[in-house]
Write a protein that binds this DNA or RNA. Structure first.
Lengths: 199, 199
DNA sequence: TTACGCATGTAAGAGGTTACATGATTTT
DNA sequence: AAAATCATGTAACCTCTTACATGCGTAA
């Protein structure tokens, strides 16, 4: 049973924008959609093949303009219909799995020291991501093929900006809380260490 | 290959807090950790069995105080050591998959109308989640078994609050953007419909 | 000529969900 | 007496990642 197979629709959706090769798809997921969607090549190629068998997409050999030969795919009417139906369904909220928060939840076992380390690293990383995303903003108008396209891409980007900024704010708050605790309690050692010392 | 097997550590971490049955674990994931972690029973029971075989946990028959018999597990020294090592590793950022954002990214195919519908539904849902989380706050002090426990639980809860509020703010901004577009363009129909009408 | 990026794929196998199965106890 | 909740599992099955394999074109 497992999950619904969203790779199909992710691929179909991209091909609805325009013809692309498997490799193109991977690049696009990585470069422009990484803050809300990920796909691996080991998933993309088989999916493309399957969609082809089902008549959802068409394949063309593209040997255009000096480039080496590659296979580009475009969506068929059937594919577009299937995509459309899926798009209208209310989006499923995914099951979340946030390793950072899980580790913090186990804080007494982790130790305040390490918690601060994890948080600092995370904050730095999030700031870097934020910078990249802010750099996207002007790019969108150039890449989008219509005003409508641009509108929706701006909306998805805005989501990323809001959430990342919230995460950064949270990091600061959390580190502040830990600092306060440290000062008032002097409890910086993980439970495991204290356990040892007690014996 | 696939992923690292975090279920092990999630279970181990919970048992480091105190003894619990498989069923208890499931409830706790669901009720108090659902905004950052999910586990299914079909995963929990086999993991518990495996951890038992490896000597990471111990099993006790608990027929206590009028309740029916159940199997509760507690962590062993080996288990705690394994957990500790994992906790110190920098948390891996998960691959994200946000169906809502994916569908919005395909906005021209989805249509402004449906986009607004999806967003509204999502916003309502997020507001409900926010309310539940805000209700948690006072509960934490009661459930936590130490000040340190309480501190860390407050930190994970704070993350949820920040992110959910950010999502709600984004919903409003996004709907505002869509409304503006609607007024200036009058383009409320999905591309599929316009395509039909054009022929 | 060596190495890197482009490009396409396959295979193995872990990880995870859902559905099925079962039975006791408590509530309505 | 029926229904809901507690409680524990197993089986089927899909999804997805990682690793492996291959070869072309171009830049250093």
């Amino acid at each position: 049973m497992a999950r619904s197979n969203r790779t199909r629709y992710a691929v179909l959706g991209m091909l609805a924008i325009g013809k692309r090769s498997g490799y193109d798809l991977k690049k696009e997921f990585e470069r422009r959609m990484s803050h809300f969607w990920a796909e691996s090549l080991g998933q993309i190629y088989p999916t493309l093949k399957q969609l082809l068998d089902e008549g959802m997409v068409r394949a063309h050999r593209d040997s255009g303009t000096g480039r080496r030969v590659r296979t580009v795919y475009s969506i068929t009417a059937r594919g577009r219909k299937e995509l459309s139906a899926w798009l209208q369904d209310p989006p499923q909220t995914e099951q979340v799995r946030n390793e950072m928060l899980l580790k913090l939840y186990f804080g007494p076992e982790l130790g305040v020291e390490s918690a601060v380390t994890h948080l600092s690293r995370f904050e730095t990383e999030q700031r870097r991501v934020l910078e990249v995303m802010e750099g996207f903003q002007p790019e969108i108008a150039e890449v989008a093929e219509s005003g409508e396209q641009e509108l929706f891409w701006k909306i998805t980007l805005a989501s990323g900006l809001h959430v990342i900024r919230a995460r950064i704010a949270w990091c600061q708050e959390a580190r502040c809380m830990l600092e306060k605790w440290r000062q008032s309690e002097g409890q910086t050692k993980p439970r495991a260490l204290r356990r040892l010392e007690a014996s």
